[in-house]
């Protein structure tokens, strides 16, 4: 890690100005659980850190208005424990409380978490491995393709990158049609979460639709009755403190015993938080049973493509989604 400067900004304006002044090598840091980790691994090399964790009002959680609003600086632990979120939107609360550990959730912010970078071991092993990785070093190749690909994605992959989008919270937000609030030198803008995450395509190093100097300031989630009938199911290699092999975020808006509108997104299996439109369409208008749930699960993976060791994710992902649909379905009764 190279020597660097550190300043703490109090306002968004102060932060963006500091960013502009610092010039090349400037990076915002919030909780630091991703950035500082990658700095220690020699993957990220900022020269200037602008701390935006304590911007005035950035940790605001407002569930009283028309939308749920989460200031980007709100801690993952605090949003997970918020009463309204817990009772009316378990999909959101569970996606947060099943991520990382309580220590990290006390550090990481909900804004920073949506910018978390992949856990692909070829990407993270910058120092010892110096493995080819198009994300870390564009044009160097992808060592994961044809390699130990058990944890790699089966949806949204390209021939340059199969790295999994690692988050849980972004998956729940994707299911719930969240909007990302961004401020930059050119002023504020809002980006629907569906447009926030990029597919790797030929440019896997470009992961988020956010420009240098811009700051994520908040996340809004439309209120919906589907929130109550929701869950986030995460299947991993151990019972806790691990990234998802497959996860499913499901929320169901009902008309009597029939699904009016299903909200479904998948994690652990795709290169970005994955909206499962096919599964949603299949469920809409239906009553929930195991058979339809599994059919929905399978439909979500119709276009999946596996490598040597990760084919199981296609079946596991389908069953995980089916289980989540059943859990959400039980909440409607």
């Amino acid at each position: 890690m190279r020597s660097l400067s550190y300043v703490r900004a109090r306002t968004v304006r102060e932060a963006t100005q500091a960013f502009a002044t610092a010039g090349e090598g400037a990076r915002y840091i919030a909780g630091g659980t991703t950035l500082y980790d990658l700095m220690k691994l020699g993957v990220e090399h900022p020269a200037h850190l602008i701390d935006i964790a304590s911007l005035d009002g950035a940790d605001r959680i407002d569930t009283g208005g028309d939308v749920l609003f989460f200031g980007a600086g709100a801690l993952m632990a605090d949003v997970a424990e918020d009463d309204v979120v817990r009772h009316d939107y378990p999909i959101l609360a569970e996606s947060l409380s099943k991520a990382a550990s309580q220590q990290l959730r006390n550090m990481a912010t909900v804004g920073g978490n949506i910018l978390q970078r992949t856990r692909c071991p070829y990407f993270r092993n910058g120092a010892i491995g110096a493995y080819p990785c198009n994300k870390r070093e564009p044009g160097s190749g992808c060592a994961a393709i044809g390699g130990l690909d058990r944890s790699q994605a089966v949806l949204g992959i390209s021939d340059t990158c199969t790295a999994v989008s690692p988050g849980d919270w972004p998956v729940a937000l994707t299911a719930m049609d969240a909007t990302i609030e961004i401020q930059g030198p050119a002023g504020p803008r809002s980006v629907p979460i569906a447009e926030f995450y990029r597919l790797p395509g030929g440019t896997p190093h470009l992961e988020f639709s956010i420009e240098g100097g811009e700051i994520v300031t908040g996340i809004s989630v439309p209120k919906t009755e589907a929130g109550k009938n929701s869950t986030y199911l995460k299947v991993r290699d151990r019972e806790s403190y691990a990234f998802a092999l497959a996860s499913a975020a499901v929320a169901l808006a009902m008309d009597g015993d029939r699904v009016r509108r299903a909200h479904i997104a998948l994690g652990g299996v795709a290169t970005r938080p994955w909206r499962a439109h096919e599964a949603e369409t299949l469920l809409n208008g239906q009553t929930i049973d195991r058979e339809i749930a599994l059919a929905a699960g399978r439909s979500a993976f119709a276009d999946a493509s596996a490598g040597e060791h990760n084919a199981f994710k296609i079946e596991l992902g389908a069953r995980t989604l089916a289980d989540a649909i059943m859990t959400a379905g039980r909440k409607t009764q």
Binding site: P121, N125, I128, A143, G146, G147, R238, E239, S240, A242
Partner: peptide, 24 residues
Amino acid sequence: ETDPRFGGVLNNDLAEYVLPVNAD
């Protein structure tokens, strides 16, 4: 886990080398 093309241990940290945690 070793990628035979590269040698070494690929899952060389405590997140990827999965030890039992309390919940296990």
